[in-house]
Structures are given as C-alpha cells and as structure tokens.
Amino acid sequence: MADNEYTEYVTAALPWLRRTAYLLCGDVHSADDVVQVAITRLYTNWRKARAADNLDAYVRAILVRTFLNERRRPWSRVRLFDRVDELKAVTNPASETTDFETREEIRVALTRMPPGQRAVLVLRFLFDLPVAEVARALRCSEGTVKSQTSAGLASLRTQLGVTK
C-alpha cells in the first residue's frame, strides 16, 4: 500500500518538481537528474514524509537541498553544451500568457546567480513561500533568506536592465 501511495504522489507531483528543478538548474538534463535523486530520497524516507504536516513542502525541501548538494560537487561544473533550450518542455501551462522572451531572459539570469540565491528566489517567488518557510527548507536563518532575496533581486535587476 505504501508503494502505491508513493507512486501516486510522485506521478502527480512530477510536473511541478521538474519545473522547479529546471528553474534551479537551468537545463532540462540536470533538472531531471536532481528530480531523480530527490524522488529516490523521498522513497527511502516515505514513511517519515507521509507523516509530515505538508508533504509538498517536505518534498520541495528535499528537491532544493538535492540541488544545492549537487552544485557543491566538482563534477556539476562540467558542461557538455553551452545551452539547452527546452524551456517549453517544463513550462507551467498556466503561465502561457507570459511571453517566451521574458521567461527565457529570467531563466538565463537565474542560471548566472549563485545556487543559494537562485534557490531563495525560486522558493520565494515561484512558490510564493514566506521567509520563515524558505528558511526551514534551506536550513538557514530568516535573515539569510532576506539578504539572499535582496541580493538576488538586485542581481536580476542588473542583469535585466531594470531600474527601481
């Protein structure tokens, strides 16, 4: 029964897991790797995960921590391609009104940021999470989340040529 619950949950969550991982990683292939590691970790901790107050938040934290851990490894800096342009494969269908160029500019700007700032911005603005929840997911202080948010937004503004 537990395996069926796990399979049903992962099947339903896979689209948003892939979108989130893509925004964090910047390319589809790395995102798929991060999702695979995250759902494997979820499987090994499924009993604990099922008991969580908010299963999606629990899984999102696993995903973000997996991304951050993978970015710390030296092999993660090896790139076989300069750019993989497969944004439509993981785009949120609900956001189709946003033009492709704007999404692409933001995606590219995110890939130029340090992983910690990228993770904070994705959690704060894609998932609209409060500072306290982002801090719990990243296992850092609320002050760190606030400073990373501020620095990340400043970097995005600079890269996109936006003035306050």
Score class of each variant (00 low, 15 high):
Arg41Trp: 01
Arg60Pro: 02
Thr111Met: 12
Thr40Ser: 09
Leu63Lys: 02
Leu68Pro: 01
Thr44Ile: 07
Arg72Asn: 03
Arg107Phe: 14
Ile39Ser: 03
Glu105Val: 12
Asn92Met: 09
Leu110Gly: 01
Thr111Cys: 10
Pro115Lys: 08
Leu121Ile: 07
Val59Ile: 04
Val122Tyr: 02
Pro74Glu: 00
Leu80Trp: 14
Pro93Cys: 10
Arg41Ser: 02
Arg73Cys: 01
Met113Arg: 07
Arg118Met: 03
Arg73Lys: 12
Ala109Ile: 05
Leu110Cys: 13
Thr40Val: 07
Asn54Met: 10
Leu42Glu: 04
Gln117His: 15
Ala61Phe: 03
Arg71Asp: 01
Pro114Lys: 08
Leu42Ser: 00
Lys48Asp: 07
Leu123Phe: 00
Thr97Lys: 13
Ala52Cys: 06
Leu110Thr: 06
Ile62Tyr: 02
Ile106Trp: 10
Ala119Val: 01
Ala61Cys: 00
Lys48Asn: 02
Glu70Thr: 01
Pro115Tyr: 05
Arg83Met: 14
Asn54Ser: 06
Phe67His: 01
Ser95Ile: 11
Glu101Lys: 07
Glu105Tyr: 10
Ala49Thr: 07
Lys88Asp: 12
Thr102Arg: 15
Tyr58Asp: 07
Asp85Met: 09
Glu105Gln: 15
Thr102Ser: 15
Ile106Val: 13
Asp99Gln: 13
Arg107Trp: 15
Pro74Ile: 05
Ala51Pro: 02
Arg124Lys: 05
Arg77Lys: 15
Phe125Asn: 12
Lys88Arg: 15
Trp75Glu: 09
Arg73Trp: 03
Asn92Ala: 06
Asn69Leu: 06
Ala109Met: 14
Trp46Gln: 04
Trp75Lys: 08
Arg60Tyr: 04
Ser95His: 09
Trp75Asn: 06
Arg118Thr: 08
Arg103Glu: 13
Glu96Gly: 14
Ala109Ser: 15
Ala52Lys: 12
Leu110Ala: 09
Ala94Gly: 04
Thr66Leu: 04
Lys48His: 05
Arg79Val: 11
Arg72Gln: 08
Phe81Lys: 13
Leu87Glu: 05
Phe67Trp: 04
Ala57Tyr: 00
Phe100Glu: 09
Arg65Phe: 09
Thr98Tyr: 09
Pro115His: 09
Ala61His: 03
Val84Ala: 12
Met113Leu: 15
Val120Leu: 06
Thr44Cys: 08
Thr91Met: 11
Ala119Leu: 11
Arg41Cys: 02
Ser76Gln: 08
Arg50Glu: 08
Pro74Tyr: 03
Ala52Arg: 03
Pro115Ser: 14
Thr40Ala: 11
Arg71Lys: 12
Met113Thr: 07
Val37Glu: 01
Arg107Pro: 10
Arg118Phe: 04
Glu70Val: 02
Phe67Gln: 03
Arg83Val: 10
Tyr43Gly: 02
Arg71His: 11
Arg60Thr: 05
Asp56Gly: 03
Arg83Thr: 12
Glu70Phe: 06
Asp53Ser: 14
Ala52Pro: 00
Val90His: 08
Leu80Pro: 07
Arg73Thr: 03
Ala51Tyr: 10
Val59Pro: 01
Asp99Cys: 15
Leu55Thr: 02
Arg77Ser: 08
Asp56Lys: 13
Val108Trp: 13
Leu87Phe: 06
Val90Cys: 10
Phe125Gln: 09
Pro93Ser: 11
Ile39Arg: 00
Val64Gly: 05
Thr97Met: 13
Phe125Asp: 01
Glu105Phe: 12
Glu96Ser: 14
Ala52Glu: 11
Val108Arg: 11
Trp75Ala: 06
Pro93Tyr: 08
Ala38Glu: 06
Asp82Gly: 15
Arg47Gly: 03
Arg112Val: 11
Phe100Trp: 09
Gln117Cys: 15
Pro74Gly: 09
